[in-house]
C-alpha cells in the first residue's frame, strides 16, 4: 500500500478554460468568482416581497439582517448602516468563494488562492482609508492613525512607525493572509483525508481504519462549511471595525 499525495500545484492550480496565458485566463477560480456573483443575484431575485417571508426570502432577509445586526450595528453602530452594501458584498463574496470547497466537482475554495483575498483586502484598505479621510480630513485621519494620544513625545516617532505599519500594512495583510491560510489549510485537510480514504479502500488489514478516516472526512466537511461562514463573518466584521476606527479620532 502506497500513499500518493498530490503535489501542492495539483491542489490549488487549475488549467484555464479559455484565454490561457493571458491576463483574462478563465480557470476554476474565476468560475467560482463568477458564481459567487451569480448565486447571490439569483437568490436575491428569487426572494419574494411578502410581508410574511418564506423559503428563499427567509434566507435572503436573514442574511441581510445578520450582516446589519451582527456586523454593521455591532461594530460601527447606526451610522454604519450606509456601509451595509459594501459589507454585505464582502460577506457574500467570501462565503460563496469559500463554500465551493465542499461542493462536489468544484471542491476548491476560491479563497485558497491569494487573488481574491488580496482584492478584498485592498477593497477594505481603500474603504477604511477613504472613509477616514472623508470623515476626519486627511490631516485628522493621519493624526488619529499615526499619533495616538497619551504617548510621551520621546516615544512618538517609534509609536508612529509602529502605528503606520500596523494600520496601513498589517491590517490588509492580516485580512488577506488570514482568509487565504484558513481556506488553504482546510482544503489541504480535506484532500488529505480524501486521499487517505482512497488509499485505505483496498483489500488489506488497514481497511479497518477506513470507517474512521471516512467519518473524519465527513466531519471535516461539516467543519469546513462552518469555517466558510466564520471566515466570511470575520472578514466583514474586521472591515467594519476598521471603518469604525477610521470614522472618529481616538
Amino acid at each position: 500500500m502506497e500513499l500518493e499525495f498530490p503535489s501542492i500545484d495539483n491542489l490549488v492550480k487549475w488549467p484555464a478554460y479559455f484565454g490561457d496565458g493571458t491576463f483574462y485566463a478563465f480557470n476554476k477560480i474565476a468560475l467560482i468568482s463568477v458564481l459567487a456573483v451569480l448565486i447571490p443575484t439569483v437568490l436575491f431575485k428569487m426572494a419574494k416581497k411578502d410581508m410574511v417571508p418564506r423559503g428563499v426570502q427567509n434566507i435572503v432577509e436573514g442574511t441581510v439582517e445578520f450582516v446589519e445586526k451582527q456586523v454593521v450595528l455591532s461594530a460601527i453602530g447606526p451610522e454604519g448602516l450606509k456601509y451595509t452594501p459594501l459589507l454585505l458584498s464582502i460577506f457574500l463574496f467570501v462565503f460563496f468563494g469559500n463554500i465551493f470547497e465542499v461542493i462536489p466537482t468544484f471542491q476548491m475554495p476560491a479563497n485558497a488562492r491569494m487573488a481574491n483575498p488580496v482584492i478584498l483586502a485592498i477593497v477594505a484598505w481603500v474603504s477604511f482609508i477613504g472613509i477616514g479621510i472623508k470623515a476626519q480630513g486627511l490631516g485628522g485621519f493621519l493624526k488619529s492613525s499615526l499619533f495616538p494620544p497619551g504617548v510621551p513625545t520621546a516615544l512618538m516617532p517609534l509609536v508612529s512607525i509602529i502605528e503606520f505599519i500596523s494600520t496601513f500594512l498589517l491590517r490588509p495583510f492580516g485580512l488577506a493572509v488570514r482568509l487565504f491560510a484558513n481556506m488553504l489549510a482546510g482544503h489541504i485537510l480535506l484532500v488529505t483525508f480524501a486521499v487517505l480514504c482512497i488509499t485505505l479502500f483496498q483489500p488489506s488489514i488497514l481497511a479497518a481504519i477506513l470507517p474512521f478516516s471516512f467519518a473524519m472526512l465527513v466531519g471535516l466537511v461539516g467543519f469546513e462549511i462552518m469555517v466558510s461562514l466564520i471566515q466570511a463573518f470575520v472578514f466583514s466584521l474586521l472591515t467594519a471595525v476598521y471603518i469604525k476606527l477610521s470614522l472618529h479620532a481616538h
Binding site: A16, G19, T22, F23, Y24, A25, F26, N27, I29, A30, S33, V34, A36, V37, S89, F93, A110, R113, A115, N116, V118, I119, L120, V123
Partner: peptide, 11 residues
C-alpha cells in the same frame, strides 16, 4: 494576474 483580474471584476 488572471485570478486578480477576475476577482476584481466579479467583486
Amino acid at each position: 494576474t488572471s485570478e486578480l483580474f477576475w476577482g476584481a471584476i466579479t467583486f
